[in-house]
Design a protein around this nucleic acid. Structure first.
Lengths: 217, 217
DNA sequence: TCTTCAGCTAGTGTATACACAAATCCGCGC
DNA sequence: GCGCGGATTTGTGTATACACTAGCTGAAGA
C-alpha cells in the first residue's frame, strides 16, 4: 500500500471519527512526522481530503479540518435527496428484482437489540447501498454519492441515533427495497424522500437536544 | 500562480478542447517536461484531474485521458437532471425574484445570429448558471454540479449544437428563469427536466449522425 | 506611546535525487 | 524455431533539499 494511501486513510478516519476536530490546523511537517511519511505523500493525501471537502485551505498557508454545522447537514441532505431519489428510480428500472426482494426480507427480519444490533444495522445499510450502487450502474452518480456519504459519516458521529429511529429506519429501508423489487420507481423515490426527511429531522432534533458543547455559529 | 495550478489549468483545457484525445497516455516525465514544471506539481495536477474523473489510472503505471461515449453522456445527464432539478427547486424557493425576472427577459430578447451569437448564448447560459449557484446557496450541490459541468464541456465539444436547438434551448431557459422568478418550484423543476431531456436527445442525435470516426463501443 | 520598517522565522511550493517495481528485450537452452 | 529466464530500462513512489513568501517580532524614529 502506498504511503499516500495510508496517510489519506488515517486522516480520513481521524476526521470522520472526530479525533481531528473541525478547525484543527493540519501543518504538513507536523502531520507527515506524526504519520511517519514524508511531506510529498502527505500533501497528496491533503489534496484528496480537500477535493472531498473534509479539509479547507483557510489561508494560502494554513489547512484546517472543515466545519460541519446544522446548515451543512441540511445542505448535505438536499443533495443526498436528489442523488438517492434518482438512484432509487434507476435501481427500480434496472435492478435484479429477486436480489432486492431478498434484502427487503432481511430488513423485515432485522434484529436491532444491543450494541451488536447497531453494527448489524450499519452493515446491512452498507450492503444495501452497495447493491444500489451496483444496480444504478452510473459511475458519475456513484462518485457523487460517495462524496456525500463521506460527509455523512461525520454527521452520524455528531448525532447519536436513538433506538426508535433505528427501527423506523429499517422499516423505511424495507419499503424502498420492496419498491425496487416491484419495479415501482415512483414508490422507491418517494419512500426514499420520506426516509431522508425522517432521518434529517431525527438528526437535527438530536443536535438541538445536545448542543451543550456544539460551537455557536 | 502556482505551477501546479498552471499545469492543471493547461491540462484541463487541453482535455476539454480535445487536444488531448481520450486514451492519450499522460506520462509524468513527458508532461512535466512539456509544461515546463517539475514532476511534483504535475502529479498534483494529475491528482486533481483524476478526482474530477477526466483522467483514469488504467494500470498502476499508466494514466490516460478518460473516454466519453454515448453511455457516459446518458449517465452524466441522469446525474445532471437530479442536481439541476434540485437546484431549480431551491432557487425558486430562495432566489431574488427580480434578478431572475431580469434574466428571463434577457433570454426573451436574446439574438443568436452568427458565430458571435453562439458566444453570447454560452455567456448568457454561464451567467444563468452562476446566478443559480448563488441562489441555491449550497456548497455541496454546487461542487457536485461543477464536476458534472466539467465533463459537459467535453460533451459540447463532441456534439455540435444546431441553430434550431440553440433557439429552443434559449426559450426553455426563459421558462425556467420565469418559473424561478414566480417562485414556482414545480414548474422550474419540470421545465428543467424537459430542457435536459431535449438537450440530451439533441446531443445523442448529433452523435448518431456524425459517428464517422467515433470509436466503437 | 504609537507607528513603521527591517530582519528573521516558520512553513509551504518546487525541484531533484534515490529507490523500487514492472515491462521489455535479448540471450540461452531446449 | 520457440519458450523461458534474467538483465536492463523506463517510469512511478518517496524523500529531501532548496527557494520563496507571508507573518511576526523587535527596535527605532516621530
Amino acid at each position: 500500500m502506498r504511503a499516500s494511501d495510508r496517510a489519506y486513510a488515517t486522516l480520513l478516519d481521524e476526521i470522520q471519527s472526530g479525533a481531528l476536530a473541525p478547525g484543527t490546523v493540519l501543518g504538513e511537517v507536523e502531520q507527515s512526522t506524526r504519520l511517519g511519511v514524508s511531506r510529498t505523500p502527505l500533501r497528496e493525501a491533503l489534496g484528496r481530503l480537500a477535493a472531498d471537502g473534509l479539509v479547507v485551505q483557510q489561508s494560502p498557508r494554513v489547512t484546517v479540518v472543515s466545519d460541519l454545522d446544522a446548515g451543512d447537514i441540511r445542505e448535505l441532505f438536499e443533495v443526498r435527496r436528489a442523488l438517492e431519489e434518482t438512484a432509487a428510480r434507476l435501481a427500480a428500472a434496472r435492478a435484479d428484482a429477486a436480489t432486492f426482494a431478498a434484502i427487503a426480507d432481511e430488513f423485515a427480519k432485522a434484529n436491532l437489540s444491543g450494541a451488536e444490533g447497531l453494527d448489524a444495522y450499519y452493515a446491512l445499510i452498507a450492503r444495501f447501498d452497495a447493491m444500489l450502487d451496483a444496480s444504478v450502474d452510473n459511475d458519475y452518480l456513484i462518485a457523487a454519492l460517495r462524496t456525500i456519504r463521506t460527509h455523512l459519516v461525520r454527521v452520524r458521529r455528531l448525532a447519536r441515533d436513538n433506538p426508535d429511529r433505528l427501527a423506523a429506519s429499517v422499516a423505511e429501508h424495507r419499503v424502498i427495497a420492496s419498491a425496487i423489487a416491484a419495479r415501482d420507481a415512483e414508490l422507491a423515490a418517494h419512500a426514499t424522500h420520506v426516509h431522508l426527511h425522517n432521518a434529517l429531522t431525527s438528526i437535527l432534533t438530536s443536535l438541538e437536544g445536545s448542543h451543550t458543547e456544539q460551537g455557536a455559529a
